[in-house]
């Protein structure tokens, strides 16, 4: 009787000790989370209810909901918000489908020199954002760019001048978003490699051809990877921490994006309070989108654990 309680004592001390070690181990992140995420987010919230001029902080006054009410009347804010969401709605499906397609190609048994081909497909993802922007600008240049001279001319297509027009940055940004596929491709490839070959074998015996196997088996089985890469791409487009953060050089100077507009309000008009309220509105929109994604994930993402 006594001995069991002694063991209990000892093990409870051990778990306490283990918990303490665990807590110490994760403490760098926990402290960093408080200093670099939680406190700044809450401070932004506080700033957003004031006028907080960047250069004369002593003149800061509580302005209540004024900043938020002003956003509704701010034509530019509305425009950049719609444009950013519109871009996301175009870019994210484009990235997802392209990544699935390329991952399927790179996973094929028939592919030769696999490692090199895979690394080459990954290559654009490590090019600095400003350099990528520059390359694409050069590429679509109406008179000297290779888009016209190498791709369209030989097959007799008319030359495109579209990209040099005033609204050039948008299609360019969409095109160059195909250059950030690397991480998504690898995640989907990994997921495809995790599928047991026996499943395919059984389907093949039942007479399912390649396309049927791909759409009815591969795609449903890799939905967790699709979900993960969807979240990653969404974060990238909406301005969170990105797996390979390259910065967005297409946007910024001209405030055609929400990011650029917040920067402009902060650094050029020096209204920190208004910038903070713009950032908070965006934050709430991102939270809503992410919650919708997670809410619908039950219906289309295959979770192996839940079946058991």
């Amino acid at each position: 009787m006594q001995s069991t309680s002694a063991i209990d004592d000892k093990s409870s001390i051990e778990t306490k000790y283990k918990r303490l070690i665990g807590l110490i181990l994760i403490s760098p992140w926990l402290i960093g989370f408080i200093i670099f995420k939680l406190v700044p987010i809450l401070s932004s919230l506080v700033f957003s209810f004031t006028n907080f001029p960047l250069l004369t902080p002593e003149e800061t006054q509580y302005t209540g909901l004024n900043n938020y009410l002003f956003i509704f009347r701010d034509v530019t804010a509305g425009r950049v918000l719609v444009e950013t969401l519109k871009l996301a709605a175009i870019i994210i499906p484009l990235q997802t489908f392209s990544a699935i397609f390329i991952a399927a190609l790179l996973n094929s048994k028939d592919l030769l020199v696999k490692d090199t081909v895979r690394a080459l497909f990954f290559l654009p993802s490590i090019i600095p954002g400003f350099a990528a922007a520059l390359m694409w600008r050069g590429f679509v240049n109406p008179s000297t760019g290779w888009l016209n001279r190498v791709l369209l001319d030989p097959i007799g297509m008319p030359w495109l001048n579209y990209f040099s027009s005033g609204r050039a940055s948008e299609p360019l940004f969409i095109l160059s978003s195909l250059w950030t596929l690397g991480p998504s491709i690898l995640i989907m490839m990994g997921s495809m490699q995790g599928i047991h070959p026996e499943i395919y074998e059984a389907a093949r015996i039942d007479g399912a051809n390649r396309l049927v196997r791909f759409f009815k088996m591969t795609i449903p089985l890799i939905t967790p990877a699709i979900f993960f890469s969807l979240i990653l791409n969404l974060t990238a487009v909406l301005g969170g921490t990105i797996l390979l953060d390259r910065g967005n050089s297409f946007r910024g100077a001209d405030f055609s994006s929400y990011d650029g507009y917040v920067r402009y309000v902060l650094f050029d008009t020096l209204q920190m309070g208004y910038a903070a309220s713009l950032a908070w509105v965006f934050f709430i929109i991102v939270i809503i989108i992410v919650l919708i994604l997670f809410g619908t994930s039950n219906r289309w993402v295959y979770f192996p654990d839940r079946e058991n």
Partner: peptide, 17 residues
């Protein structure tokens, strides 16, 4: 929570820091 912090837009933490 840690996973969720990946999704936080940079601009919101950037202003106070």
């Amino acid at each position: 929570i840690m996973i969720a912090t990946i999704l936080i837009p940079e601009k919101i933490t950037f202003i106070p820091t």
